[in-house]
Design a protein around this nucleic acid. Sequence first.
DNA 1: CTCAGTTGAGAAATCGTTTTCCCGCAAGTT
DNA 2: AACTTGCGGGAAAACGATTTCTCAACTGAG
Lengths: 330, 330
Amino acid sequence: MATMREVAGRAGVSTATVSRALSGNPTVDPDLAARVRSAAHALGYRPNGVARSLRRQTTAVLALIISDVENPFFTAIARGVEDTAQSAGYSVVLCNSDESTAKERRYVDVLLQEQVAGVIVSPTSAAGALEPLWDNGTPVVAVDRPLPGLECDTVLVDSRVAANVATTHLAAQGYQRIGCLTGPVGVHTADDRLAGYRDALRAAKRRSAADLVRRAEFRTVGAKRSAADLFGIAEPPDGLLVANSTMATGTLEAMSELGLRAGRDVGLVAFDDSPWATLVDPPLTVISQPAYQIGTMAAQLLLARIGGDARAPRTITLNAQLVVRGSSHR
Amino acid sequence: MATMREVAGRAGVSTATVSRALSGNPTVDPDLAARVRSAAHALGYRPNGVARSLRRQTTAVLALIISDVENPFFTAIARGVEDTAQSAGYSVVLCNSDESTAKERRYVDVLLQEQVAGVIVSPTSAAGALEPLWDNGTPVVAVDRPLPGLECDTVLVDSRVAANVATTHLAAQGYQRIGCLTGPVGVHTADDRLAGYRDALRAAKRRSAADLVRRAEFRTVGAKRSAADLFGIAEPPDGLLVANSTMATGTLEAMSELGLRAGRDVGLVAFDDSPWATLVDPPLTVISQPAYQIGTMAAQLLLARIGGDARAPRTITLNAQLVVRGSSHR
DNA sequence: CTCAGTTGAGAAATCGTTTTCCCGCAAGTT
DNA sequence: AACTTGCGGGAAAACGATTTCTCAACTGAG
């Protein structure tokens, strides 16, 4: 790999001039600059980003820590982040914390060592693992879930309201015993969606039966078990709010095994729209979250911070949208 | 951020000793080492990875360039790569080339600048955009698709055989006019799957009607259009091989709009298993590819190269598996 | 008691840029 | 003619670690 010295030698100038010429500094004579450029080209010179980062004390890399790479909601966020970062000249490192605080901590360590310019994170739980970023002054933007202790820019979706709307919709469709299948205790979106569900039942003057609520990992298998369990109780629910799309597949699997039909037997609404939601029979009513937009907004906020924006942290709350399809009416 | 100098100052030693102590070099006195460690801890010292990389002339970062972040097949690969890299102390940068050679080229540039230790790539087309990696001596492993011109480690799935098996299965189920919906010309997997389809028809002594083959982007919308088109011709197919899961959703959408039922009206087999494949009615017969394993194998090959393995490049071909469900029989 | 051999640790070079500082030269001013 | 100004570009410092030299001190053998 050709270094700057070699380019300088070939062009008969100092490395300082090479640096200036290649970075388009106007104080360098056009002829000289051309000579430098052609020398660089001839040698196939490519600046060493590591050396540059060391000197500049910053890198053109953003990090995105998500809790599940295989969840389409998060990959859609990733795409939003990437597109925005890309067009600002930044690249994106994607890290998969797998909902594990230990992994999150490890990644934070790596990211600090690599001196990334900023971090977007969907926090696993408490802010503990992220402290070091704050200590270091690295800008952080939280997405999907707030970061309780720390003050930082945050991009959320109003899950609680959305869950409320969805539950109210189910009640309005005549479903009597509406249940809720949500994520683990402590995962903010899981708690939030449960809260919205309860808000709706309270508003509808319905008894919020504790035995109609189940919690599981945000994954297919656990959700399937919990759903089967829920449908097996003495007075099973005839309506169900499911907290994300991977859990929805688990729920549908359980229902199919039990011979329950969505809509007719159980009114069903799930968070997150998926390409397959219209393919199942009946099509699935969903709460569609603007995932891509979450990504772009988060990236914009982060880039602003990196650019020196020192205003008070902002929290942006986007709205989810109830998309009514066949699974939520008889 | 505390630097090594500060740690050295606090411990009353030189930076050289700090470096040695922290890297576990046995030539440093245990007491001293302990003193250094406690000084480092007290200052919250964290080595500067950029400086380290500059000096060591290598980084502990692998890159993975995939052609579609939102395709579950590729995210499953990503997970395999990540898990393997992680446990070897490497982190992974995920880049999304979006099937665009230009984007691929840009990423290669960034990765060279950042001096990543190695690259795993699902190449978009010709090897052109990847040349610079070779020039630089960066180890490369190709996944999913071979890299025609260049010699490098490769992890593939035998798509052609799998397509053949699937098509033969459709023929055996009594479907007469079997079509194929595949990806763009030049994308190796698309061509390969088409070739396998043709192999099967030839072996079954069937006429391989050119008008039963359609090509589209590996995406939902294009596939939907092509499928609708295909079902609209004078003598439409009664069987169809679809080249990936995003195209399968498009196909199913088109079929549902046309009132066609899988299995009964059209025998259907698609590449890639998805969590929703069992939820549609009838459940979708698929060719399941070992995506996670592709990722782990690729990462292992790459890590071996980084470790100095100089043997001749290997090509590993994994097998896909036909999972017969309801969509491929009457 | 001396000298070779070992061990531990500091000084300084190094990685490849960017950036600061400074100097020489030419043009403009009085 | 002497004196500022301004501009272009070179020399060298800096970034923060690792690693090579190098050397002092100590050990043990003869």
